[in-house]
């Protein structure tokens, strides 16, 4: 895991995904400011969409490099379970793409009009839910393994599957900005996220094995 993390850090994936996120937020913010309707609610929606898009950004390279240079073959031939490897890879992916963005959110949303208290609470919600996004997108990476132009395909397959989490996340964020709390919704979101984390490594490993039969 340490090796994976170091490798990902060396690839400068962090810089790419965070700058993508910042640019997306700023562009949409500037666009909305022309209509003059930039409210807290629209900003929340933009943040959720931006975070789901940027978690898809670097997913393509997750298995592709290992697939190309044969590391994945070795993993499959050796006794280490692929599920564990997928699990580690997804965690690393989450640390390198989503975590920096979540840390950035209070900084970027404060000048744009969300109060700092609310944005910290929203960060907490995102901490609960975004690991699931990373885990789900491994399914897409596994499905398009070996395809040349897989990036577009991944977003077609994977963005719809983000829906449950985005629905819950947005609703909870809306409740937060209305200063109402719903512990039930938090729990369900967390449960959903945990279920995704528990199940997706197995599905992904099954799909990866298809490429080797």
């Amino acid at each position: 895991m340490k090796y994976e993390l170091l490798f990902a850090l060396a690839n400068k994936g962090i810089l790419l995904s965070t700058s993508f996120f910042i640019i997306l937020i700023l562009i949409v913010g500037i666009g909305f400011s022309q209509i003059g309707e930039s409210s807290e609610k629209t900003l929340l929606a933009i943040i959720w969409i931006a975070i789901s898009l940027s978690s898809l950004l670097s997913i393509k390279t997750m298995f592709q490099e290992d697939f190309d240079d044969g590391t994945l073959d070795l993993y499959i031939l050796s006794n280490t379970s692929i599920e564990t490897i997928i699990f580690i890879k997804s965690i690393v992916h989450w640390i390198t793409t989503n975590l920096p963005i979540i840390i950035l959110i209070p900084l970027i949303s404060f000048p744009l009009g969300i109060t700092i208290y609310h944005s910290i609470l929203i960060c907490f919600v995102m901490l609960l839910s975004t690991p699931a996004l990373s885990f789900i997108s491994t399914i897409g990476a596994a499905l398009t393994l070996g395809e040349k132009g897989g990036n577009l395909l991944i977003s077609i397959f994977i963005l719809p599957t983000f829906l449950p989490i985005i629905i819950f996340g947005m609703k909870i964020s809306l409740l937060i900005t209305n200063s109402t709390y719903d512990i039930m919704a938090h729990l369900i979101l967390f449960a959903l996220s945990l279920i995704c984390i528990a199940i997706t490594p197995f599905i992904t490993s099954l799909i990866i094995k298809i490429h080797y039969t």
Partner: peptide, 25 residues
């Protein structure tokens, strides 16, 4: 056959998440 496998898995995963989103709504 490989694409058949992939598309079948996509269908299964898709229906799980379609159901989840439906109930989320």
């Amino acid at each position: 056959d490989k694409i058949g496998d992939l598309s079948s898995w996509l269908c299964i995963v898709g229906s799980i998440f379609a159901l989840l989103s439906r109930y989320a709504v």
